[in-house]
Design a protein around this nucleic acid. Structure first.
Lengths: 137, 137
DNA sequence: TCATCTATGTTATATCATAACATTTATTAT
DNA sequence: ATAATAAATGTTATGATATAACATAGATGA
């Protein structure tokens, strides 16, 4: 059997809780600020906790924001995609079954073998439509 | 008529040439190093040139690498997607007509209005397949 | 017990990006 | 021509993101 992985450490649990509670992606330094009261004082601890959470599929990195979100569907294996509102900052995670297959197929035409995919869509969420421009406030 | 935009400045032309000549994405500081012989000494000049090139669709930012590539198909309006070899570092830009429509449709189900999309696929190119792991060398 | 693995602490530094303001160059209108 | 404008660049400083390297500690398992 595949050896069970260790349980999350208190720091890892705390980081996941902070990400889950946030309505928006948090940067590593946002998290570090929130963790200071827990006695965490240095960036590596935060980045290490994030590594573990991402390895376990419990959190995702938003590349275009250099920030992190809790996974809204832990333990799924499909490609996670994100719709990011540039007005209010909310991020919606979604999964489209065909998308990963299509991306694999298209990139694979030239013999490319995909191991990881980043799909991030910027724009405006339903609530913020109408505000054509604007940044988070 | 839509007013013609200015021609590229020498610095902008130089940055584009460097990106085109490179076999891999270049970071802003890679470019800065290469531009020192041209008398460019500070990051803002590089970032500004990149801004202009990206605005004109002549270069793209690879979010997952914090680096930049020349566009292989200037003036197209379709979504640009990238296949990034994590072994040798080469980036292939490709366009799939249906992909943008599909992404718009899927994200739009909840009323989201897309303005910009990032699609980056990491893995191994045909030449590097077989090398299952490994990083650029 | 001993070796190993994971996590964390700690210090320092590397890397990526922009703010703010001055200056210069090119374009356009008059 | 020249004044007004817009775009690019220079310059200094700083902000923001991320990791290297090495030490320590606790848990797991042979």
């Amino acid at each position: 059997m595949t050896s069970a992985s260790r349980p999350l450490s208190p720091t890892q649990v705390r980081v996941l809780a902070l990400l889950s509670a946030a309505q928006k992606p948090l940067s590593a330094y946002d998290l570090l600020g929130l963790l200071r009261e827990d006695g965490v004082n240095a960036p590596p601890t935060v980045y290490r906790a994030l590594e573990r959470l991402m390895r376990d599929g419990l959190a995702h990195r938003i590349e275009s924001l250099n920030a992190f979100v809790a996974c809204n569907k832990p333990h799924h294996t499909e490609l996670a995609s994100f719709a990011i509102c540039d007005h209010c900052g909310v991020v919606a995670e979604f999964t489209d079954q065909d998308l990963q297959a299509r991306l694999s197929a298209v990139s694979g035409r030239s013999g490319f073998h995909a191991t990881r995919m980043t799909v991030e869509i910027h724009g405006h969420c339903a609530k913020c439509a109408g505000h054509a421009h604007g940044h988070a406030h």
